[in-house]
Amino acid sequence: MPTDFTGLATPLVADACVRLGEPLRAAPAGILPVVAGRRVAGRALPVRHHGSVDVFLEAFTHAEPGDVLVIDNDGRRDEACIGDLAVLEAEAAGVAGVVVWGLHRDTPDLVEIGLPVFSYGRHAPGPVRLDPRDPDALRSARCGDHLVTADDVVLADDDGVLFVAADRAEAVLETARGILRTEREQARRIRAGESLRAQTRFDDYLKGRAEDPAYTFRRHLRRIGGAIEE
């Protein structure tokens, strides 16, 4: 499964999805790494939490090296659903990282463990509930508006978390690399004294928009080969 996220960032991947017409599937804003600078990419290992850690342990029996555990805790803010022991067990199972639609706890221990964990944040209380287990508990997970399965790749960094269909991941990442090359060249030229307005022929865009109000800046960029918005 292609997961070479080296040198890329989630904003570039998001822009690549838009450029290719792929569904833009981002975890809700605010799901960020426990330790800034941590990144992860790998096949999704989905799980639906129902109040007990046993569902995580069962998921680990099916984990493949490099998988990313995606926990659906319904975005709850009243409990932390994962802590140090579960994360240690994830690491022992070869899991590359954890994404939680919810909260974590045992923050100092997670920092020491070092496995990338992404969540809404920290909360001391763990679950006191035990709900009926969903029949799809090990087959899919919700993360905000998006359904995640083992057919997806997870890409996460300081800007958030994205989910991309595995069979489209290589095309998306290759497009992201192309956008990166363009943006690096644009940045180099700005530092050399050539403004972004000059590079993007912004005066031409304003003239084009005056003649045709439907002429968008995105359309203009595509025509001239620039890259800012996507």
Rank of each mutant, 00 (worst) to 15 (best):
M1G: 13
F5A: 00
L8V: 05
V13A: 04
D15V: 04
A16N: 07
G21N: 08
E22D: 11
A27P: 08
G30M: 09
P33K: 09
R39P: 00
R39T: 07
R39H: 06
G42F: 02
G51L: 06
G51Q: 06
L57S: 07
E58H: 11
A59Q: 01
E64F: 10
G66C: 10
V68L: 07
I71M: 13
D72R: 01
G75P: 04
G75T: 03
A80H: 07
C81H: 04
D84Y: 10
A86L: 08
A90K: 06
G94S: 07
A96T: 02
D106W: 10
V111R: 11
V117W: 05
R122V: 12
H123R: 13
P127S: 14
V128W: 14
L130H: 12
D131Y: 14
R133M: 04
P135K: 06
A137T: 11
A141D: 03
A141L: 01
C143N: 00
A150N: 07
D159P: 01
D159R: 03
G160P: 07
A165Q: 09
A169N: 02
A171K: 02
V172I: 09
A176N: 03
E185T: 13
Q186L: 13
A187N: 06
R188Q: 12
T200A: 11
F202M: 12
D203L: 14
Y205N: 01
R209T: 11
R209F: 11
A210D: 10
E211L: 14
D212C: 09
P213S: 07
Y215R: 09
T216W: 03
H220P: 01
R223S: 13
G225A: 06
G225C: 09
G226I: 11
E229K: 14
